[in-house]
Design a protein around this nucleic acid. Sequence first.
DNA 1: GGTCTGCCTTGATGCAGATCAAAGCCGGAA
DNA 2: TTCCGGCTTTGATCTGCATCAAGGCAGACC
Lengths: 214, 214
Amino acid sequence: MVVLEQIKYYRSFQAGQPVIWSGDRMDFVASVVTGIATLMQTMEDGRRQMVGLLQPSDFLGRPGRETAAYDVTAVTDLVMCCFRRKPFEDMMRTTPNVSQRLLEMTLDELDAAREWMLLLGRKTAREKIASLLAIVARRDAGLQLRKPCGRITFEVPLTREEMADYLGLTLETVSRQMSALKKEGLIELHGKRQVIVPDFDALAEQTGNDSFLV
Amino acid sequence: MVVLEQIKYYRSFQAGQPVIWSGDRMDFVASVVTGIATLMQTMEDGRRQMVGLLQPSDFLGRPGRETAAYDVTAVTDLVMCCFRRKPFEDMMRTTPNVSQRLLEMTLDELDAAREWMLLLGRKTAREKIASLLAIVARRDAGLQLRKPCGRITFEVPLTREEMADYLGLTLETVSRQMSALKKEGLIELHGKRQVIVPDFDALAEQTGNDSFLV
DNA sequence: GGTCTGCCTTGATGCAGATCAAAGCCGGAA
DNA sequence: TTCCGGCTTTGATCTGCATCAAGGCAGACC
């Protein structure tokens, strides 16, 4: 890993800034140090679909690929650890560990993408919102090393529009469903981003996932 | 690769047969030799979403995972080349080539999954159908080593219901959109499966993809 | 031939979520 | 303090696709 150290450098982005546009030349790969970024696909007429949410330790870029496949945007302030692509590729060839680790991460991402396909293709708006909140809640709880259960509080790092782009909905529908969940006591809102879930299991039941065990 | 030879064996499935169910113990990995299989996710209430379509040379299973994550079903008659999982995992550790090759394939699948997320989240029924037909047509043309252009004929290996499960639609909507494309002369149908596309570019314009270059 | 079965098509109707439109909220700048 | 701009909420209406319901077609089998 000494070699890795020699070719790495850091880049910072402010919340809202683009990291790279789809089709741009990209001669680095990177991993997120702090902050959150989105991978977005855009159609000519402006329809947008988020296809990935990068969190700390997530990997960006594809060895062997010259151009970016997606629009990448910093959602929060973002620090990334970058490696120039060529040296990184050389190192992959010589250091099996790296490609094995990368394979693990890619397989995890593929599983996540497939879970998201079920959500996009078959879930109702309400189930989509509940699923997103449950995922964010679970991740937050995970960082605090305890299972999500009982009353939990967390921050949703996305605007309503970003949530909509993630879930394949419009921002109005997202807003309405959030209001509905609030009215039914499944969530409480403090400000626009802070969410309190009084009973995680009750929320989990609304996701449409079976038994939703982790 | 000698080692690989020693631990491999073949399995055949008839069209319609299950290969494995989600949650089942799975102590092999495999690659498709001939035929087509689907990866499907199912919700408790029966809603289904296809999350992958396995074609010859595609890989099934995940090193390091004990149970199947999806329902796998043979769509056509199917032959798979299987490797017992443990020896395969051992070999991955000792033979960097294998995990590097597997990484390439997984990254391709991830790209495909993300393209499908855009389709599921944002495309209209008509665009979804056109996209599916274009993909099958392109793949078929690819096997014949020529770009899809002008008049092309191919077989859709899926029933209307399977198409619906792939596209996040109902089978009735699939049928109606196929009829609509036929009425407009964008496709011709011979029997239920045989599709003739008189003008590939005209169909490609209906997919919603920008400039749709390969 | 008949009829059974699995797939497909087509029609009628309903509804979830999109779209269009108008305010509300809140933090920052002047 | 007011104003402004970005984000959010809420209401009214529309519509694309789902749902419910009937047949149609073609291959398999008697």
